[in-house]
């Protein structure tokens, strides 16, 4: 059991069972859609940014436990953060899931650190990062559809 408990940590299983901030934000002023063409996962991120801060954020879509939990924890973490902090968190999260938690980990990641185990599963990194790329595209106002390709 222990090997895959490192990937499927209790926090991940909990957020998969009970995703937070799930759905579409009706009064969003930033939004983007992301897809993972390899597996068909789809995610929609809607945000309301007020005075440079994320006042509300939701995610919608269907995916595996890793992608659902990643999006759920991401929305929890981003709430109340500035756009600049959100961009920094994206970089830190990207480092965490590609290099693992062995190296230097940004303390501001908080609960997101449970995804450190994903780095051991190269085929699953895209599952965890799709919602982040989509969130970044929404903040940047990108019109290009987001894919993990």
């Amino acid at each position: 059991m222990s090997e895959f408990r490192e990937l499927y940590q209790e926090v991940i299983l909990d957020h998969n069972r009970n995703p937070r901030n799930f759905g579409v934000l009706e009064d969003a002023n930033r939004f983007a859609d992301g897809t993972n063409p390899l597996c068909g996962d789809k995610v929609k991120i809607t945000l309301r940014v007020e005075d440079g801060k994320i006042a509300a954020v939701r995610f919608d879509g269907m995916g595996c436990a890793i992608s659902t939990a990643s999006a759920s924890v991401m929305t929890e973490t981003l709430l109340g953060k500035s756009e600049e902090d959100a961009q920094k968190l994206f970089e830190s999260f990207h480092d965490l899931i590609t290099h693992g938690s062995a190296g230097e980990v940004d303390k501001s990641l908080g609960k997101l650190k449970v995804f450190g185990g994903v780095s051991e599963y190269p085929t699953r990194i895209k599952c965890a990062i799709l919602c982040w790329h989509t969130m970044k595209a929404a903040l940047d106002g990108s019109q290009e559809p987001v894919t993990t390709e």
Binding site: E3, C39, C64
Partner: peptide, 13 residues
């Protein structure tokens, strides 16, 4: 209640 990708990863273990 389980996405196929999670099945794939766990049986691979």
């Amino acid at each position: 209640g389980v996405h196929p990708h999670d099945i794939g990863t766990i049986v691979d273990m």
